[in-house]
């Protein structure tokens, strides 16, 4: 059995009286894209923030790259994980290039190395440096901003990536395009990721494994094929409910 890159063991998290995650057990193995599927408020973002140390589990343990989250130096942990934030989260006063090179800058890479890396990544996500590098985030479309967010997450070549509904706010055509590119990048880079979405179709398309979360509890954990074949009532309800939305 290979060592998991991310592991939740009996993890619970509460904000005050409110229980947000309950007894979550989950593993992400090397090369997997585990999709965390759930409705708004089911605790998906909370789970990601437990992984990068923005939140600490109330009970149970979260282990990342073989080390328990509280044992990591907080900034080290965050820089070792690529995080594509819900709504983009680009710094509005930095150019596209500086946003992409942020983690290398924090890590103190030499200027030329950062420049070369930014150039390479912007090319990778289809936003050539010469055209987009010196733009400010507000001068980009929503889809372009998400591409920059992906490039930024990849910058320091982290072994694990977290995606928080990266394509959620996009029109269906742009979303489909970015989903295809996500699959291409995964083929090319072989990265391991934990990917959050509320869109069943996106989950089935991108996930090597799907984990369904409802009100902070894990309802299902299995392959896309298992997911489709499953006749768990909650699962069927989620699929129908989600399909109604689109």
């Amino acid at each position: 059995m290979p060592e998991p890159l991310i592991e939740f063991r009996n993890v619970s998290y509460a904000a005050g009286e409110r229980r947000i995650l309950e007894n979550l057990n989950l593993q992400v193995l090397a090369g997997e894209t585990v999709v965390l599927l759930g409705r708004s408020g089911s605790g998906k973002t909370t789970a990601l923030r437990l992984v990068n140390g923005m939140l600490q589990a109330a009970s149970g343990s979260v282990t990342v790259l073989g080390k328990s989250v509280p044992d990591w130096e907080p900034e080290r942990l965050k820089r070792s994980i690529g995080y594509v934030i819900q709504e983009g989260g680009l710094l509005p006063h930095f150019t596209v290039a500086r946003n992409v090179g942020l983690v290398p800058e924090l890590e103190g890479w030499p200027k030329e190395r950062i420049q070369a890396r930014v150039d390479e990544l912007l090319h990778l996500v289809g936003l050539p440096m010469e055209v987009y590098g010196s733009r400010m985030p507000r001068q980009l479309s929503g889809g372009q901003r998400q591409r920059v967010g992906v490039a930024r997450a990849l910058a320091a070549d982290p072994p694990v990536l977290l995606f928080d509904e990266p394509f959620g706010a996009l029109d269906p055509v742009t979303r489909a395009e970015l989903q295809r590119e996500f699959l291409r990048l995964r083929m090319d880079l072989g990265k391991t990721s934990l990917f959050v979405t509320h869109d069943v179709r996106e989950a089935l398309l991108l996930g090597t494994r799907i984990v369904l979360l409802e009100a902070g509890r894990l309802l299902f954990d299995g392959t896309a094929a298992n997911f489709r074949a499953s006749n768990l009532p909650a699962l069927i309800a989620f699929q129908e409910g989600a399909n109604d939305v689109f």
Partner: peptide, 25 residues
């Protein structure tokens, strides 16, 4: 708050946050 939050999520230390985000903004 979302901007500060994403700066922290990228791994900024407190002093980097002040220098690179809070002071310029």
């Amino acid at each position: 708050p979302g901007i500060r939050d994403s700066a922290v999520a990228m791994g900024m230390t407190r002093s980097q946050l002040v220098r690179l985000v809070e002071l310029p903004l």
